[in-house]
Structures are given as structure tokens and as C-alpha cells.
Simulated assay, not measured.
Amino acid sequence: MTTGVRRAVRSLVAAGAIGAALCATAHAQMTLDRVTIGTGPAGLLYSQIATALTSIIQDKTGIPSTARPHGGTSQYLPQLHRGEILLGINSGLDASSAYLGKEPYPQAMDGIRAVLAIAQANYSFIARANAGIETVGDMKGKRVVTAYRTLALFDDVNRALLETAGLTEEDITPVAETNVPDAIQALTSDRVDVTAAILAITAHREADAAIPGGTRVVGLGPDDAPVDALQGFHVGILEPGPGTVGVKEPTKIAIYDSYLNTGVHANADDIYEIAKITYENWAAMQKAVPALRGMTADDLVPARISHPFHDGAIRYFREIGLWTPEHDKQQAALLKQG
């Protein structure tokens, strides 16, 4: 073996040793053998987010990581509470209701903790673009989907949207559908005049293409208070653009946060690392899931939190300056409620 070859071999061995050491360091920071994230049905937004995040976690730590789909997001909240699953993605409204034991949850699951806000979804009513329905106030007397049989929590949300224009269900003809895609299909088949919907999801895009003239996102009324009173919701303005559907001009809508959740039983160092990996690789998350491109990494800690954060996540976000005294105040108030 020549001197040059020996040097090359020694360099390769050294590089391998360094790589092994780095991998060992990454593993030493986490106590887990596996990372599992519970999601809703495969193919929907939460499943897409979890698949992208588990890929990044596995790449950065070497720990096997998978997304586990469920029929509904409420199915794994009890598992998070009991510490039977490490992570799950839920709306802030769902997680808050479970934490406090509000309907439809028969008892409080006070072991649920947030790691970070992982997505923001746009929500409002939609109508046929040629129906002349531009704001909620124009919906009086119309057939409107206001209830989903499998998403009872959103019945209150839909009533709050009506209240922004001073309307109640007595002012419309309320209709119930099984879920959001079915509600949008009811609009496409002309069984209803208006439906509440998560905006720009696949079902909305398909309806916009199928309906002559397309769809129109219905603007909320002038009173923001009913929406702002909902846990995890706030009012925002949706601008027209290539990522939107049915938006003709700046339109007032509801926006809700979805969280990556865990349980109080989770190791603080593990949750610290998961929060850190997500924050530092947010650009990669946005590349993998275009629906996340409206959020910045700093949006992972909302100004208004819907349920308590895990101590490990708080430690990381405090270190980088995102966790504020106002968050401490909210955290303390939420813990007293639990």
C-alpha cells in the first residue's frame, strides 16, 4: 500500500469516526427509540405535514420516525393524554376542548401539551361566484351547511361566522353534512347555496373547477368578536393570489391554528429537540408542504395559545426569544384551568 493510499484510507476512517460520533451525539440528545406522529386520514393536510416532519426528524437524528393516520384527529388525543403516543396534530380548538373536558369530550385530558403551532388554516363560507353572495350578510334566507356530523366542534365555529353579520341559524336554512368534503360537494351539486369550508383544500379546488364561473369565498361580517372568542381562532384578510381559490378581492376570513401536540409524560429533552429541529428546518417543511408557506418559523409560537405548552418546548423557544412574559401569563392561566 502506497503512502498516498494509506493517507486516503486514514482520512476515510477518520471521516467515518466523526460521522459516527455526530450520529451518537444526536442520539444522545434524545431518549427515544422511535418517533410517531398521529394524524387524520392519509393524504390530507395533517398527514402531509407529519410525513414531512418525520422525514426531517429521522434525517437529523437517525431515529426511525413515522406518521400514523387515524380516522379522525380526536382518536389519538386520549393517547397523547395517557402518554401512549409521542406526538399528534390537532386544531387548537380540538386540543383546547379535550384539555378542558368540553363537549364532545366527557372528561378533561389535562395531560395534553403543545410543542408548537404547525399550521394555519383559512376558514369561511363559500358560495357559487355567480350567486351574488359576497359577505355573510348576503346569506339570509339561503340554504347553508352549518354542521358536520363528524366534526361537531365546528358547529360553534360556523355559528360564530354567522354572528359576525348579526345572523343566527333562524335567519337561514341550516343543513348538516358528514364532513367538509361532503359539504363542498353539496355546493357543487347545487343542494345548498353556501357551505362552510376549509379554504383551498383539494375539495374546494375541485369544486371551483367544476362549478361554472367558479366559487367565491364569502367575507365575514363587521363584528370580529364572535370569531376572536373561539380558542385558536382569529380574523384575518385573505388576499387574491396563485395560492388562493375563489378570492376576488381582499376578503375577511377566520384563521385557525393547528398544533403539534404531545403529553406531559414526554421527556423534556426529547421535546426540546423536536421543537428545535422543526424551527431550524422550517424552510424545508414549507418546501415539502406548500400549505405551510404562509407561516414563518416565528409563527410556531402564536401570540395567543389555546392550551399549555410542554416544558421542553418552552425551554427551547425561551432560548431563541420567542417565548415572552405574556406567554408565561397565558401558560399559568391555562394550567389553573386544567
Rank of each mutant, 00 (worst) to 15 (best):
M1A: 01
A17F: 15
G19T: 06
A20G: 14
L22F: 06
T36H: 07
S55D: 15
D59T: 15
D59Q: 13
I63H: 10
S65K: 12
G71F: 07
G72R: 07
R82V: 14
L87A: 01
D94S: 09
S97A: 13
A114H: 03
A114R: 05
L116Y: 00
R128A: 10
A129C: 07
I133R: 00
E134K: 14
G141N: 05
T146S: 07
R149I: 04
F154S: 15
T164V: 10
T164D: 10
A165R: 05
T168V: 10
T173L: 15
V175N: 14
A176R: 04
A186E: 06
A186P: 01
D193V: 12
L199Y: 05
A207W: 00
D208E: 04
P212R: 08
G213N: 08
R216C: 02
V217N: 02
P226H: 07
Q231D: 15
V235C: 09
G236E: 14
L238E: 09
E239A: 06
T244H: 05
L260W: 00
L260D: 15
E273N: 11
A275S: 14
K276R: 14
K287D: 12
L292V: 02
P302N: 10
P302W: 08
H307I: 03
F309T: 01
A313N: 05
A313T: 06
R315D: 03
W323Y: 14
P325N: 13
A332T: 03
L335W: 04
Q337N: 05
